[in-house]
């Protein structure tokens, strides 16, 4: 009996703790891992996030006909681990504190970034995004930049040619 009265007393002193949640917003702390958002202006299209993403929520497809690379985020698969944020070289993808993702429109769960691709100087095939070329170029010494304008295949041929010239 004493225990029951003690519990009663404590119950009364605590009061009501549940929140009127859907009607009243809930604060989440700093550093909460919520919905990731891709910054269209910063994204280079390098695909680092795509490689790191454990559940394959991020995907990368090259549309060679249109000459664009599409980075696509599907929130339906996202596990909010934040690995994409860790590996992004330019902080283009960031986790926000937003967590209410329910929607009646399926498309609300997708984010897409389409980036124009650079065409190879030799064969004319699109091989990577212009932004990525620019980004890498800015980090390379001037004399090495010319390689960047070739697609990997042509670059291979080109450099093997160079090597063979050197040998002669």
């Amino acid at each position: 009996m004493r225990e029951r009265l003690g519990l009663l007393r404590r119950s009364i002193s605590v009061g009501i703790v549940t929140e009127k949640y859907p009607y009243k917003p809930i604060e989440v702390p700093e550093g909460f891992r919520g919905k990731p958002v891709i910054d269209q202006d910063k994204c280079l299209g390098c695909g680092a996030c795509v490689n790191a993403c454990p559940p394959n929520a991020l995907s990368m497809t090259d549309d060679l006909d249109r000459g664009v690379r599409v980075i696509k985020l599907f929130l339906g698969r996202c596990i909010f681990c934040g690995r994409c944020q860790d590996v992004c070289p330019v902080e283009a993808i960031k986790l926000t504190r937003e967590f209410e993702l329910a929607s009646i429109n399926h498309n609300d769960l997708y984010q897409e970034v389409a980036l124009v691709m650079a065409k190879c100087m030799v064969c004319g095939r699109p091989y990577t995004t212009i932004r990525l070329v620019e980004h890498v170029a800015s980090n390379l010494p001037r004399e090495q930049r010319s390689h960047l304008l070739l697609c990997p295949d042509c670059r291979e041929k080109h450099s093997s040619k160079k090597v063979s010239y050197a040998r002669w």
């Binding site: 550093g31 909460f32 891992r33 909010f80 934040g82």
Partner: peptide, 10 residues
């Protein structure tokens, strides 16, 4: 607060 999520600490 410590990990950014209630349950899946990641």
């Amino acid at each position: 607060m410590l990990t950014g999520n209630r349950k899946t600490y990641g």
